[in-house]
């Protein structure tokens, strides 16, 4: 929970060993996992070859093996492979059942939803069944977390034949490589849920919502496409809202439109981060905006 991060840091200065509620929650997770491990121990010992990072009964990955630090530096030089251009994105790797051959032919289905900084993938999983016909991808910078989501999707695909074929995840720095993955106007929804708040002013340029990056998001979003943001940090919520409000290519959704959109409800409930905030009774701040054609372009 990001709103705790700042608290944590401030607390750490005075009483370094004090735990926050969030940490207690995590400890609870650990206890639960530990009991699960005990109950499954025999089973695992019987099958020595089995991957210990996978929960045997559900086939899903066990989070304790995929924990990673919350921060990741988006400015550092990347060392992972990046597709040369959107036409080089290998859909058969991401959606093997839907794209059996290596490269998709032109005009076939393209990815329409992008969850930027998908974390442990809670939203993607919920969206997958809500929009079974839509291709969606999560983008995450942290290697371990991406691995977790990958395993989670694979597990879900095995457990639910025919389902979850439309979701995938990729490890990338979306702040740098969005145009390498999506063509102009390809996306209809983009999600920025509980992003790293980067409290310090000198780190504001690392924020995933910034006036200049919105130009790129407007480029990959089709006219009418929607950008969803939510955070539990009030300061960041205001920042994201003002960035979107001041951008000529975005307009806010009306209250009735927000109520009618089933996705809006998922923002605070589907993600791990959102659930944590709800458990701790935290507040969330959301901003949902539509990509529009700016007034200056109308006559062209």
């Amino acid at each position: 929970m990001w709103s705790d991060v700042k608290l944590e840091k401030n607390k750490a200065k005075q009483t370094p060993l004090k735990h926050s509620a969030a940490l207690h929650e995590e400890a609870k997770d650990f206890c639960f996992l530990a009991s699960l491990i005990l109950s499954l121990q025999r089973e695992i010992m019987l099958q020595n070859k089995a991957n210990p990072t996978i929960n045997k009964s559900t086939g899903l990955p066990r989070k304790r093996f995929y924990r990673a630090r919350a921060h990741s530096n988006p400015l550092s030089d990347s060392h992972f492979p990046v597709p040369l251009s959107p036409s080089h994105v290998d859909y058969s790797l991401h959606y093997p059942q839907l794209f059996p051959s290596s490269y998709r032919s032109d005009g076939s289905k393209k990815i329409e939803f992008a969850d930027i900084g998908c974390g442990f993938g809670g939203l993607l999983i919920s969206l997958s069944t809500l929009f079974p016909e839509t291709l969606m991808i999560g983008m995450e910078l942290r290697d371990k977390v991406t691995e977790y989501v990958k395993e989670r999707i694979l597990g879900l695909r095995v457990a639910n034949p025919g389902q979850y074929q439309n979701v995938s995840v990729v490890r990338t720095n979306s702040m740098k490589y969005i145009p390498n993955y999506f063509e102009k106007g390809q996306l209809s929804k983009m999600f920025f849920l509980f992003p790293d708040p980067h409290f310090k002013e000198k780190n504001h340029r690392r924020r995933v919502i910034s006036p200049h990056l919105l130009d790129e998001y407007a480029y990959v979003l089709k006219v009418g496409g929607i950008i969803y943001t939510i955070t539990d940090v009030e300061e960041l919520g205001e920042w994201m809202k003002s960035c979107l409000q001041n951008h000529p290519m975005f307009e806010s959704l009306s209250e009735t439109e927000l109520d009618a959109d089933p996705v809006v409800k998922l923002l605070s409930t589907a993600t791990e981060e959102g659930q944590k905030v709800a458990r701790n009774g935290g507040q969330t701040f959301q901003a949902v905006y539509r990509r529009i054609k700016p007034a200056s372009q109308e006559n062209s």
């Binding site: 040369l84 251009s85 959107p86 145009p179 390498n180 102009k184 006036p211 919105l214 130009d215 790129e216 407007a218 480029y219 951008h247 000529p248 290519m249 700016p294 372009q297």
Partner: peptide
């Protein structure tokens, strides 16, 4: 002076 917000294209290759 209001900024250039409309990206025409990216030339990638």
């Amino acid at each position: 002076l209001d900024g250039a917000h409309e990206v025409q294209s990216f030339c990638l290759g």
